[in-house]
Amino acid sequence: MVERIPILKIGETLLVTIQVDFHDRVALALQEDLTDKIVTHSSKGVLIDISSLEMVDSFMGRVLGNIAKTSRLLDCHTVLVGMQPAIAITMTELGISLQGISTALTAEDGMELLKALMSKKQKRVSHGRQIARK
């Protein structure tokens, strides 16, 4: 039995807080569950909070990237919030840049960014940022 990360639905968005040790299988299960829920609820945004995560290796980085790519195919935006400085430095040194994932400092900033991304106009947002998509 694989531990599963709860996914909360709030309006058009899905909220995920990764609190457990992000085991490989837990990560893959999350990717699967999220994709299912996006389709079931026609969600337009996913907010992933990783503030209590202790490390992100290249495998987890790839899973997070895949979540963003899959969501995008389903017309849904993903914002990653709360990354710890130590993790950001380690990921940069490792060479993971999470191209295509939007990031924000806090859950609050992340929600605002999601709202902006979800609104058709896609105007320049002041809080949080969106990493340029090639």
Binding site: L80, V81, M83, P85, I87, A88, I89, M91, T92, E93, S97, L98, T103, A104, L105, T106, D109, G110, G128, R129, I131
Partner: peptide, 13 residues
């Protein structure tokens, strides 16, 4: 470039 990408990962410009 490293410093800038780490900043971005955190969600800042």
């Amino acid at each position: 470039i490293k410093t800038v990408s780490a900043t971005r990962l955190m969600g800042a410009d």
